[in-house]
Simulated scan of single mutants.
Amino acid sequence: MKRTLLAAALLGAGLLSACSMTGPGNLKVHEAVLYGGAQERVVWVYGTLQGSASSVKLGSQSADLRAQVSDPIATPGSLSVNGKATYREPTATLPAQVTVTRQGSAFTVTPASGAQISAVYYTDGQSWTRLNGTIGTVGGTRVDGLKGAGQLTDDEARVLSDTLRPQGPLAVAVLANQPAPALAVEPTPTEHLRSDLYILSSVPTAQVQPPRPLPGTPTTPTPTTPTPGGNVTVTQIATGTNANTSEAGVQVAATASAASSLYARAYGRQSSVPTPPSVTGRTLIGVFLGQRPTGGYGVQVVSASSSGTQLTLRVRLTAPAPGAILAQVITSPWAIVSVPGSYSAVTVIDENGQPLPTATGGGQVR
């Protein structure tokens, strides 16, 4: 008798729970299932609220749906889930699906045995490229982020692109299969889209891209000796997130041997170390942030000024926003720039004027 009453009570509770799921009108669920460098399922929920709130069941979790909150990964028309822009849960570890190496404007793509890859995207931390193939040595086409990847809407592709881009260089492989189990949703949505993406962090670069001036800096030739004072033309040489150092610092190179030492520090964890540019009449300066726990950190030199033989670099530091989708890999961001002339001392400050660790001459940190 007691067992019968208990079973009836449990059944009643289950029916009550099911009835309490007042899903929004025209419920739609869109998933981005991430593997590799970022192991989580990101779910956007869309629909028309029944009053000020509605509820659904996502997986084993009951979710309260309300008007969307302000968040970098919120998309137009989506609803907040338990006070967050999306519903998120971890995904199981997936064996490596692909390796990608960049060399100049070409890429070498090697899928793992059995991997089903329909497209590969790459970001160097500044822009996005869609590779022109999924195996072998291929070129790439500049694209507007992850637009067209899997079943992502344009808005979902945009927010994912904006979140992942600062963590470059990285690659995103679009999987044609669905390794993770399906997400159960109650009530049944009118639309359920899913995109499975493998994130490959710290894509190695076997060749430095040609130097390009930073935005807003002059492109006319400048003297090879320090000016008495004022702005100095600074040329960005390369940036990365996987330096061969865990320590923060600034490294200066005014000779060929010092330049080689600087490049070994920046590229030492990659498949090959590029040949540094000539330092004749110029100085190379590397700014290293040291070890960081995830992707999303970076450094960019935004300006330079001199006073006699004293050089000051101003840098912009970036860090991940709270709740951002992050590559779960230890990084070590860096930037290398070139300036005309030689200097007896180099100081690096952030945008608030606070100093970073400094070094002088010979490519040695001190």
Rank of each mutant, 00 (worst) to 15 (best):
T137C: 11
T294A: 08
T99W: 02
A157P: 13
T219S: 12
G37V: 06
P221I: 00
L313F: 03
T360V: 00
A119F: 08
L197T: 10
V29S: 15
V43N: 10
G295K: 06
S271V: 14
G83H: 09
I349D: 09
P215T: 10
Q68A: 15
S118I: 01
Q300F: 04
Y267R: 04
S307H: 10
A327V: 12
H192P: 13
I330N: 10
S201V: 07
G308S: 06
A345C: 02
L5W: 06
R269T: 08
E156V: 13
G36N: 05
T294S: 15
T101P: 07
H192F: 13
Q207A: 15
V208I: 13
A63K: 01
Q251A: 00
Q291H: 04
P215M: 10
V315C: 07
I349G: 12
R3D: 04
G47N: 12
G168Y: 09
E89D: 08
P333H: 05
V138L: 02
R41G: 12
P213Q: 01
T294G: 11
S338A: 03
L311G: 03
Q61I: 06
S307L: 11
L183Q: 14
V302E: 08
V42Q: 14
V120L: 07
G145N: 07
R41H: 12
A92S: 10
L170K: 11
V172R: 12
A321V: 09
L289G: 03
I330E: 12
Q300E: 07
G139E: 00
V301T: 09
I336E: 02
R102Y: 05
A180E: 14
T123S: 15
S62G: 07
L193G: 13
T224V: 07
P357F: 02
Y297M: 04
T347P: 01
T331D: 15
N177L: 05
V348C: 03
R3Q: 06
T190Q: 15
Y343Q: 00
T123Q: 12
I117K: 05
S161H: 10
